[in-house]
Design a protein around this nucleic acid. Structure first.
Lengths: 136, 136
DNA sequence: TTTTCCAATAAGAATGATTACGATTTACTA
DNA sequence: TAGTAAATCGTAATCATTCTTATTGGAAAA
């Protein structure tokens, strides 16, 4: 997702255009890896030494709720990255060295079909972890 | 997995048979849900009011490293349950109401085959979340 | 442009899970 | 039964995240 589209979504939902908010989005636009709240704060504090954790966490939560960012839990910490452009549902290979991802077009839920008829399925998680060709 | 098998593994690896360790395993043997460290401590402190967090976390880590317990991250907390008996690799549906699980025999990695030839695949996670028939 | 209002932010304290550590106790071995 | 290393206790420290109150800043209206 790019900045323009992200701001379209934010404006539609009544969020104000602030410089901090914009700069956080710029970081994600320029980095395809999964980043933590601390990663964001570290970069932001170069320009805004007084930047607060609260601002980072609040904005990350906003972005995730609007599907601008996607989140996942890696070794006990929440990680975030720009939501994929792809309009079809997919999953990710995640490189545990460099953090870069590769889209996996397959979704195991397609194959489960009616295997769980009596169950209410709300969500699912499928991720592959390892090393990408560059880090291998 | 049952207590006997768990103690077999522990003894093989030189771990001592302590009453606390045994009682933690008994809790897991009698509960098919995913439990947190706090859940364990709460139950244990009925019998041992001085039970320490350190003891709980240390033993949980030991059990996971020996594949006696399996662990997963649910809403920011580590959860543990007895390792499944099934000798074939499988995944889980997890009920977010009661915490009970259902085994899913399918593994998406089987279907990926050689789809990621240049990648080193170390691990993967596939879990389905929702409500079981009883909670629905 | 200026005023006004409410969302957004700063600063730091609070929380909650997890880990660490020195002192003490316990399980096994000889 | 005594010796020894592992296990546990009691508590403090750490780390990510959330909360709270006061202040600031964006944008709509005057």
């Amino acid at each position: 997702m790019n900045l323009t589209k992200a701001w379209g979504i934010l404006k539609e939902n009544g969020f104000k255009e602030t410089t901090k908010r914009n700069q956080i989005l710029e970081i994600f636009e320029g980095d395809e890896r999964y980043l933590t709240a601390r990663d964001i704060l570290d970069v932001m504090q170069k320009d805004y030494p007084s930047m607060s954790y609260d601002t980072v966490y609040r904005n990350l939560a906003t972005f995730v709720s609007l599907d601008i960012l996607e989140a996942t839990e890696l070794s006990g910490e929440k990680h975030f990255r720009m939501h994929c452009e792809s309009d079809h549902h997919h999953h990710h290979f995640i490189c545990m060295d460099c953090g870069k991802i590769k889209e996996i077009p397959l979704c195991p839920m397609d194959l489960l079909g009616a295997a769980l008829p009596a169950y209410e399925i709300d969500n699912h998680k499928f991720e592959i972890y390892g090393k990408c060709p560059d880090c291998k």
